[in-house]
Deep mutational scan, measured.
Amino acid sequence: MVVWDEDGFQGRRHEFTAECPSVLELGFETVRSLKVLSGAWVGFEHAGFQGQQYILERGEYPSWDAWGGNTAYPAERLTSFRP
């Protein structure tokens, strides 16, 4: 999975191949867009795999509404991930 700290695949970029309990440890404040290259990941609103969670299947997510636009409580950012 590849993530960016700005919408539209802009800004700082990082690629994950294993779980990440906090993007803050990588110098990111948040993740605002992402691409899942294969498989599925779970993205969490807060560090430590806490808060609202989203199943992220293979594909592109250019902004928060692409992963959470249909929920009652959409998270505008993700800060931890698990494959």
Results as ranks from 00 to 15, higher is better:
Val3Tyr: 00
Gln53Ser: 14
Gly59Lys: 02
Phe49Ile: 03
Tyr61Thr: 02
Tyr61Ile: 04
Ile55Met: 12
Gly69Asn: 10
Val31Asp: 03
Cys20Val: 14
Thr17Asp: 14
Gly11Arg: 01
Phe9Tyr: 12
Tyr61Trp: 04
Gly11Pro: 00
Ala66Asp: 12
Glu15Leu: 09
Met1Trp: 00
Asp65Pro: 15
Leu78Phe: 13
Asp7Val: 14
Gly68Lys: 13
Cys20Lys: 00
Arg13Tyr: 09
Leu78Arg: 00
Gly51Asp: 04
Ala47Val: 11
Leu56Val: 02
Ser63Asn: 09
Gly27His: 05
Gln53Ala: 10
Gln53Val: 06
Glu76Ala: 13
Val42Ile: 12
Glu25Thr: 14
Ser22Trp: 00
Thr71Leu: 11
Gly68Asp: 07
Thr17Arg: 11
Gly51Met: 00
Ala18His: 15
Pro62Gly: 09
Gln10Phe: 03
Arg77Met: 14
Asn70Lys: 10
Gly59His: 00
Leu37Phe: 07
Glu60Ser: 12
Pro62Cys: 10
Pro62Val: 06
Arg12His: 15
Asn70Cys: 14
Trp4Tyr: 13
Ala72His: 11
Glu15Lys: 07
Arg13Lys: 11
Val31Leu: 03
Ala75Leu: 14
Ser22Cys: 08
Phe49Cys: 04
Arg77Glu: 09
Ala18Gly: 14
Glu45Thr: 13
Trp4Cys: 01
Gln50Phe: 07
Phe16Ser: 02
Trp64Val: 15
Val3Asn: 04
Trp41Val: 03
Ala47Gly: 07
Ala40Leu: 11
Gly43Ser: 02
Val23Pro: 01
Val42Asp: 07
Pro62Asp: 04
Glu19Leu: 05
Glu76Leu: 14
Glu60His: 12
Ser38Thr: 12
Ala47Gln: 10
Ala75Asp: 14
Gly69Trp: 06
Gly8Lys: 09
Gln10His: 14
Leu26His: 15
Ala40Lys: 07
Arg77Trp: 10
Glu15His: 09
Glu45Trp: 02
Ala47Asn: 10
Pro62Gln: 06
Gly68Phe: 08
Ala75Pro: 14
Pro62Arg: 11
Ser38Gln: 12
Pro21Ser: 13
Arg77Phe: 12
Asn70Asp: 14
Arg32Ala: 06
Glu6Gly: 05
Ile55Asp: 13
Thr71Val: 11
His46Leu: 12
Phe49Leu: 01
Val23Ala: 05
Leu37Gly: 04
Phe16His: 06
Gln50Leu: 04
Gly69Cys: 08
Phe44Leu: 03
Ser63Gly: 09
Asp65Gly: 13
Ala47Ser: 09
Ala40Asp: 12
His14Ile: 10
Asp7His: 13
Leu37Cys: 06
Leu26Val: 07
Tyr54Gly: 02
Trp4Arg: 01
Ala40Gln: 08
Ser33Leu: 02
Glu19Asp: 08
Leu26Tyr: 15
Asp5Gly: 03
Arg13Glu: 04
Arg77Pro: 13
Glu15Arg: 06
His46Arg: 09
Val31Thr: 02
Leu24Ser: 15
Ala18Gln: 14
Pro62Ile: 04
Glu57Leu: 07
Ala75Thr: 11
Val3Met: 03
Leu78Trp: 00
Gly27Arg: 02
Leu24Met: 13
Arg12Trp: 02
Thr79Ser: 06
Gly11Tyr: 04
Ala75Gln: 10
Phe9Pro: 00
Ser63Glu: 06
Ala75Gly: 12
Gly8Thr: 03
His46Pro: 01
Gly69Thr: 09
Ser38Trp: 06
Thr17Asn: 14
Ala47Pro: 11
Ala40Ile: 12
Glu19Phe: 00
Asp65Trp: 09
Trp67Gly: 09
Pro74Asn: 10
Leu26Gly: 06
Asn70Ala: 11
Gly51Leu: 00
Asn70Met: 14
Ala72Gly: 13
Glu25Met: 11
Thr71Asn: 13
Tyr61Val: 03
Gly43Pro: 04
Asp5Phe: 11
Gln50Gly: 05
Glu6Ile: 04
Pro74Asp: 14
His14Ala: 09
